[in-house]
Structures are given as structure tokens and as C-alpha cells.
């Protein structure tokens, strides 16, 4: 099977096991630029592993992942890290903001890792913080802001490099519905405005409802729900 034409990131026949635990067992995936795809499934089904493989964080045991025509398996760890720095953005459920850095420094971090000067990086960071309505928090440390604010800071950080793909793993998992929805609205709006693709791992249907398409992962196998109907 070949990836659907025009897809930005696609995976076929992914297999990955952690010791005796099989996390992925022939999963498939594809996403187009500007598309928001929700990855759903019960706990332990392998949806986070799928995200980690797609993002080049974890190499799969077998299968292929192509990003923009390049095979991820053929890249070195350093190349994949560079790809993640420049082309991808990440939002996780917790533990992602560096507690010592101020919010604006946290948002500027990916730019700084790419070699942008501190001043410029923080300027860009502030623009994004304004878009996510958290520019008032620039001097605060993550420990001093609420969960929803922190998550918006994290979204700003994920988008600050203008990534082509945004990976979000349970981005609202630790938030109440109101905050969760606000974060989703801002996240999807921002992604659409930059034509970024969003891989959204969630177990909440109302969060998945912000997607254009849904994939369900069960027992390490994926199912594209569009093809079901």
C-alpha cells in the first residue's frame, strides 16, 4: 500500500514492541498539510507510541515513515532531532515546561535551540503568546501559572518555530472542559492559520471533535474511520 497522494507524513505497517509488550502491530497513518487528525483509542492501545514513532522520537521496529518524501528510518538520531527542532512542534499532557525558565523563555526555547539569538527568539515568542492570550505571563515561571495557562504557553512554544506538523499528546488531559476547549480552539485556529498539520492524540471525543478526521488505534492496529463510512 502506498501513502495517499499529497500526504505530508505517512506511516505504513508500523511495528514496535517494548520488551514483551506489543505497542504497535501494523499501524498505518497519513496526514495532509493543514489537516487535523485525531488519534483515539483505549489506554494502552498504542496511540502515544504511534505519535512517538511518527515524530521520530522512537524508531519503530519495522515499517516505514515518510515525512515530505523522506524516510525517517534512514535518518540518524541527530538528523531526526534536527527535524523535530525545525519542522515539528510538540504539546504534551504534563512535565514539558522547564520549571526554572520564565514562560517567555520557555516559548523561546525551540528557537534558541535552532540558533536564533535570544532577543529575536523572545520577540517571536511574545507574538505567539499574544495569539494564545498568555502574553501577560511572560515573566512568570510555570509553577506560578494555572494548568490552562501553562498549556497555552506550551502550545505557543510548539508553534513558535512555525512547524509543519504539530504533535499533541493529550493536550487537554489535565484541564477542565472549559479550559480544554479553549486550548483546543486556539491550537486548531493557530495550526490552520499556518497550514500546519496536527496529530492529536486524545481519548476525549469532544477534543477529537476539533479534528477533521479520526483514527482509532486498538491493540496496536490503526483504523481510519473515514474509510469505515
Amino acid at each position: 500500500m502506498t501513502p495517499p497522494p499529497g500526504s505530508l507524513l505517512a506511516a505504513e505497517e508500523l511495528r514496535k514492541a517494548y520488551g514483551p509488550t506489543v505497542a504497535l502491530d501494523g499501524a498505518e497513518f497519513s496526514i495532509h498539510p493543514g489537516e487535523v487528525v485525531a488519534v483515539m483509542g483505549p489506554s494502552g492501545s498504542g496511540k502515544s507510541t504511534l505519535l512517538h514513532c511518527l515524530a521520530g522520537i522512537v524508531p519503530p521496529d519495522s515499517g516505514s515513515i515518510t515525512y515530505n518524501g523522506h524516510e525517517l528510518a534512514g535518518m540518524s538520531d541527530a538528523q531526526r532531532s534536527a527535524l523535530r527542532r525545525s519542522e515539528f512542534g510538540f504539546v504534551f499532557q504534563f512535565g514539558q515546561l522547564v520549571p526554572e525558565l520564565t514562560c517567555v523563555e520557555n516559548v523561546a526555547l525551540p528557537l534558541r535551540l535552532n540558533g536564533t539569538s535570544r532577543k529575536e527568539a523572545e520577540k517571536a515568542a511574545l507574538t505567539w503568546m499574544e495569539r494564545l492570550e498568555v502574553d501577560g505571563l511572560r515573566k512568570k515561571r510555570p509553577g506560578e501559572v494555572s494548568g490552562g495557562q501553562g498549556q497555552r504557553v506550551a502550545v505557543a512554544r510548539a508553534l513558535v518555530t512555525n512547524p509543519r506538523v504539530l504533535f499533541a499528546d493529550e493536550p487537554t488531559g489535565a484541564l477542565d472542559s472549559l479550559n480544554g476547549e479553549r486550548v483546543m480552539e486556539l491550537l486548531t485556529d493557530a495550526a490552520r492559520s499556518t497550514n500546519a498539520a496536527v496529530v492529536l492524540v486524545t481519548h476525549e471525543a469532544r477534543v477529537a471533535a476539533y479534528s477533521d478526521r479520526e483514527i482509532v488505534v486498538r491493540d496496536g492496529k490503526s483504523r481510519d474511520m473515514e474509510r469505515v463510512v
Binding site: 512517538h52 515524530a55 522520537i57 541527530a78 532531532s81 534536527a82 527535524l83 523535530r84 527542532r85 525545525s86 515539528f88 512542534g89 510538540f90 504534551f92 504534563f94 512535565g95 514539558q96 522547564v98 520549571p99 525551540p110 535551540l113 510548539a158
Partner: peptide
């Protein structure tokens, strides 16, 4: 641990 992993996820070099 978790923070370090997430920093690596978004492409921080191990050297850094």
C-alpha cells in the same frame, strides 16, 4: 526524567 524526555522530544541536542 519526564522533563528531560520532553526536551529531547522537541529536538534538544543531548550535548546541550
Amino acid at each position: 526524567k519526564k522533563l528531560l524526555s520532553s526536551l529531547v522530544a522537541f529536538g534538544t541536542r543531548r550535548r546541550t
